[in-house]
Amino acid sequence: MIKVEKLIKRYGANTVLNGIDLSIEKGEIIVVIGPSGTGKSTLLRCINFLECADSGRITLGGLSVDAARASKRDILTLRRQTAFVFQNYALFANKNALANVAERLIIVDGWPKARAHARAREILERIGLADKADAYPAALSGGQQQRVGIGRAMAANAELILFDEPTSALDPEWVDEVLGLMKALAAERQTMLVVTHEMQFARDVADRVIFMDGGRIVEQGPPDKLFTDPQDERTRAFLRKVLAQQPSLAP
């Protein structure tokens, strides 16, 4: 089980995360929604220690760390049990698709190259890019790049994969192939924490939807409950706005 307790993060006088408590069961798929600037990305980045929270505790894979006092070792250990999928893919531009997926196995996990490449090939097969193994990111479409980004996260065999708006930067034509891959991962019960504006995905896939506003978790629950019967006025207002843009989803 993964646990985040009383997480607080400030940028100067701006309190971006204001005491986040969250526990995630193994195999659980959680979708985080909320208005822009509420700290959704910051929450994911603090869990991965791309940012250091000012206080709070993070427990993952048997290691429990006080975020404010995490040592370099702790941070590496925690990072190695999570994986991150970025909005803008963030593939390594000097490595082809195969090497992007294999990199972590070779460098972080110390696998021999041949074994890492064999594993990376399996993953490319699964994400439908076996024929693009030699292609560099610059030669891939946005959708293909993001699938490689997810492949790189899959190689980590992580306790938890963090997705920060994985489809927001994509042209609409590529969104479905990425969401499809995420659905397949969810079907295998890969634990995931997903920030997204794709409400249909949240409905179909999430075990739990979390609504964040102003650095706090305002409301959470199973998607059919949260989408049809939100308790808090802020949730209702947010959903009205989003569902107006995605009318097919209105209850």
Partner: peptide, 22 residues
């Protein structure tokens, strides 16, 4: 692009590995 640095750190690379490999 700074995002490649973050990607490398997010998969658990050390600063030295990040420099050398990416």
């Amino acid at each position: 692009d700074r995002s490649q640095t973050e990607a490398a750190l997010s998969i658990g690379m050390t600063n030295a590995q990040l420099m050398r490999r990416i």
